[in-house]
């Protein structure tokens, strides 16, 4: 079973984000990058499928040079090889444009399964995997927690709202978007990190893939969100703030 996993590099979780001078994107200098959370679960699912069924796991990422470190991280965890679509200018590509890059890079691989995370932690479109499926003409299912290979294809467990689930059968090849929490994530071993250095990472570019994406949807401006409520901030040291809070909860909010 050959599985492609699309992995996005995103700003580290607790990064302090600042709007850049043009008000178009965030100030990227000075923070750390990491693997998008649901993509880490997609990778884990792919590695487990390979362990059970044999085959190959190929990681695919589009972005500037720095993205290479996240590809190496996936290789260290056990992916077999990587493909990087290198471009500095993806900032103003919409979800369809990026999905075209991923779909074109994946197309010639003829994989049995294409996995993505269900949503990126930075742009949060929650769409790229479904668009890739449509572009490749593959059946798909989204918000998947568990994947099982069957004689007929796949049986997957899909998350629904409010604690409900559903299982879905679909033929292969197929595309799935993976939700977090279905598996326990593994760490890279020292041996894995060492091996990753020698694994193949093929680089390509949007031009080589023949993708130029005129944006259908444009991000015009970003800003700090508007407050919905006026929050009373309780200041002072932990002790004073805690005492003030208890007082407010008793006498003002009357919830204690």
């Amino acid at each position: 079973m050959k599985v492609i996993v699309a992995i996005k590099q995103v700003p580290e979780r607790d990064a302090q984000v600042r709007v850049d001078a043009a008000g178009k994107w965030i100030e990227e200098s000075g923070f750390q990058w990491s693997m998008n959370e649901s993509d880490a679960y997609a990778l884990e699912e792919a590695l487990q499928l390979k362990e059970k069924n044999g085959g190959e796991v190929v990681v695919l990422s589009a972005g500037p040079e720095r993205v290479g470190s996240t590809i190496r991280e996936a290789l260290a965890k056990g992916a077999d090889r990587g493909i990087q679509v290198e471009s500095d200018g993806l900032g103003d590509w919409d979800a369809l444009g990026v999905a075209k890059l991923l779909a074109e890079a994946a197309r010639s691989e003829n994989a049995d399964l294409v996995l993505t995370g269900l949503q990126s932690d930075d742009l949060g479109y929650g769409q790229t995997g479904v668009i890739v499926a449509e572009l490749l003409g593959l059946p798909h299912a989204s918000l998947i927690l568990h994947v099982e290979k069957t004689d007929a294809g796949l049986t997957v467990k899909r998350e629904l709202e409010e604690g409900w689930f559903q299982s879905i059968e679909l033929p292969m090849p197929a595309a799935l978007t993976i939700q977090s929490g279905g598996n326990k994530l593994r760490y890279a071993t020292l041996m894995g990190i060492k091996k990753a250095k020698t694994k193949e990472v093929r680089k390509t570019t949007p031009a080589e893939l023949g993708v130029t994406a005129p944006a259908v949807v444009t991000l015009n401006q970003i800003a700090q969100p508007k407050k919905q409520k006026t929050t009373q901030m309780l200041s002072g040291g932990p002790k004073e703030a805690a005492a003030a809070l208890v007082e407010k909860l008793k006498t003002e909010a009357r919830v204690l």
Binding site: P225, K226, K227, Q228, K229, T231, Q232, M233, L234, S235, P238, K239, A241, A242, A243, L245, V246, E247, K248, L249, K250, A253, L256
Partner: peptide
Amino acid sequence: PIFEVADYGIVGDLFEVVPALTEAVKAA
């Protein structure tokens, strides 16, 4: 973003604030 919907907020390290709050609740 949680502060955008909070009525009351304490900005601080939870490892300091939470024990202090537990004490304050017990005292009250």
